[in-house]
Amino acid sequence: MSKVLVIAEHDGAILNPSTAKTVACAASIDGASVDVAVFAATAGPIASEAAKLASIARVVTYERSENEYALAAIIAPQIVAVAGEYTHIFGPSTTFGKDLMPRVAALLGVNQISDIMSVESSHTFKRPVYAGSAIATVEAPMDAILVATVRIASYSAVTDNNSALIESGDPSVADIPTHTRFIEVKSGATDRPDLQTAVKVVSGGRALASAENFDIIYRLADKLGAGVGASRAAVDAGYVPNEMQVGQTGKIIAPDLYMAIGISGAIQHLTGIKDAGTIVAINKDEEAPIFEVADIGLVADLFTAIPELTEALD
């Protein structure tokens, strides 16, 4: 029987929604028993949130001061110390999980599966390759521990009606390295919905032509109560910060509504939005590839259409 350990993602205070989606993937393995591990300086509130997640057996907390910031080099050896109890160790395919899980796998002497999008059996999974241009079915050996990251856009969060047991684990690992030190996180903090979990997302592309012009995107997003994203081209051009990038090398998202404005729709961008419910594209160029995947398309100049749309939505 499969026994899966899901590594909780959090910011030191709040459980990241990626955890509930990773649990959904773990729980879709036939007959799996799922534990959630919280590595933190103070795990209490995070563990309480995690204990509500449906389908899990228990939450295990590993508290030590070194766990204040999620540094892979510090957390990985602690995961390895408890890995023996489990057949699978899963993390989310966010920058947190992508940084951490391969380090865990290498310390355990196994290869890792990245971006699970569906579970075929306990050791067989589907995952995207070539920016989603192909889907590979991969199989890991039965006789080794299986370490993987879960493509969170492929899963809906499990419900939060559970009250799983919370236990405190033994966090004593002999040698926690000191060679990696956290300094700070700089983020363009915003009141808008978080891009990765927003129900609606409005994204702008290179056609916005300047940081100032992005204002019309923000105004439309605020009218819709939407999160704001951007194409790689818009980020590279410096119109918006990196954390807004959607696509192969940015965030992979699955909102109910995705509005692509002035985005041509390169494959690298499309791979980040293919699980969206409804895709709306507004672009001046009627040949833009974004229209091939859009559910609703409008050929128009965004500088007139977007203010008009914002006005019309009341």
Binding site: F96, T180, F182, K186, E243
Partner: peptide
């Protein structure tokens, strides 16, 4: 400086 989901993380390494 690392590009992470929350923004830009700065770390010091040996």
């Amino acid at each position: 400086t690392r590009e992470v989901d929350a923004g830009l993380e700065v770390i010091e390494i040996d």
